[in-house]
Write a protein that binds this DNA or RNA. Sequence first.
DNA 1: GTGGTCTAGACCACT
DNA 2: GTGGTCTAGACCACA
Lengths: 127, 127, 127, 127
Amino acid sequence: MGKDFSSKTPIYLQIIQHICSQIIRGDLQPGEKLPSVREMALKMGVNPNTIQRVYMELERESLAEARRGQGTFVTENRDRLQQLRLDLKHDRIKTFIADMTEMGFTTEEISLGLVEYFAKSLNEGDK
Amino acid sequence: MGKDFSSKTPIYLQIIQHICSQIIRGDLQPGEKLPSVREMALKMGVNPNTIQRVYMELERESLAEARRGQGTFVTENRDRLQQLRLDLKHDRIKTFIADMTEMGFTTEEISLGLVEYFAKSLNEGDK
Amino acid sequence: MGKDFSSKTPIYLQIIQHICSQIIRGDLQPGEKLPSVREMALKMGVNPNTIQRVYMELERESLAEARRGQGTFVTENRDRLQQLRLDLKHDRIKTFIADMTEMGFTTEEISLGLVEYFAKSLNEGDK
Amino acid sequence: MGKDFSSKTPIYLQIIQHICSQIIRGDLQPGEKLPSVREMALKMGVNPNTIQRVYMELERESLAEARRGQGTFVTENRDRLQQLRLDLKHDRIKTFIADMTEMGFTTEEISLGLVEYFAKSLNEGDK
DNA sequence: GTGGTCTAGACCACT
DNA sequence: GTGGTCTAGACCACA
């Protein structure tokens, strides 16, 4: 079967991705406090240092800000969050299309493949 | 032709990906001989060890076979190649959709985004 | 007036720095009463504990003295204040030059850089 | 004496600063290989992780680039290095002047202080 | 209690 | 051998 050479994504990136999703979905509101480093580490079953790094990266991306002795908070800059949403959307689409066309799939083939997939998940949703 | 790898994915995976694309597109025909390890290494501006690993993986996936003293050849098993094509297509689509929905994008939003992207690339193609 | 601290230096140090400047400039006269801890905390939009620490440090440096039940006052020892002024001046200059030369800037380059900077600020002042 | 509240700079920042100085001075040439993480850690008497972080930050600043299995190298982008030089110069000068004027020192006083300091170091150099 | 830095030591993937 | 990630545990400064 097509077990196609999956490269393992580092945990800290996975967690970042996870938090980003929560932010994008609105599960995490602007200005909301994130769990403390230790708390989150416990929750994710991971070492506090790993979370520390996650929060560091989020801050570097202006998605969160750390306040000394108080905690880490989702940025209140809604523009930045909106931008994140669009950036991620475009980025994923672009990579996807680039990947597919580089592999020689035509636009029609891609579209059909997507429709097919949607149909399949709908059927499964019917169960 | 020199190297042009920039992303974080390991070089050997990028090269595998590249060769797979060529096979899928038919640029590399079933049974066709791949360049020798050294030749390919030179062409890609990369260490021969890296190519060695690439060919090893391709063989492990039954996409190529090494013939002692003759070189490495694309498999002549056309079924395997056809299967590769479909596997990769399904896999990419599945991952893509999973990613997008996990980030909270609706089906509509995804479809619109794709159309938008296609439109944009068409415009750029007009230049 | 709200808070306006952004750099990485601890807030309490920034506030100390700020008060020192006021003392040096004469905005705060020898013997003048400083705002109460709570008052100052409110004014700076900061936790009272932080101000507490600020006043403590100022007292440790003999720049202020707390009088039980009355408040905290700028020291009346004018020699100490004069000394503070000179100390800070020398210290900043020394650090600045040490920094610059360690980075390999020549004396000429430093001087030119300063002149250039003065010129620029003058121009901006003209607006 | 004027022991003015020096806040301890983290080791990793000190090392970054140190390497930047070497780059600016030309002690480290563009494209030159930096010592391996472990080597540097030994040399600086520091934990490898700390150096790891240093190199990570340098890479993020486009001042160095890590090549898998080969080592970490000073960027070959000379423009970036020139920019670093200017950035640091301006930054230090700006901070210095801002600091001094905020403390109420006049332009004359600053200039005189600098001249005085240069004179003093010259005398010491004569010894 | 909270974030930030640092150490010691391990394991892995890549070249 | 090289960079990169992760763990475990410690200490500190800040609020």
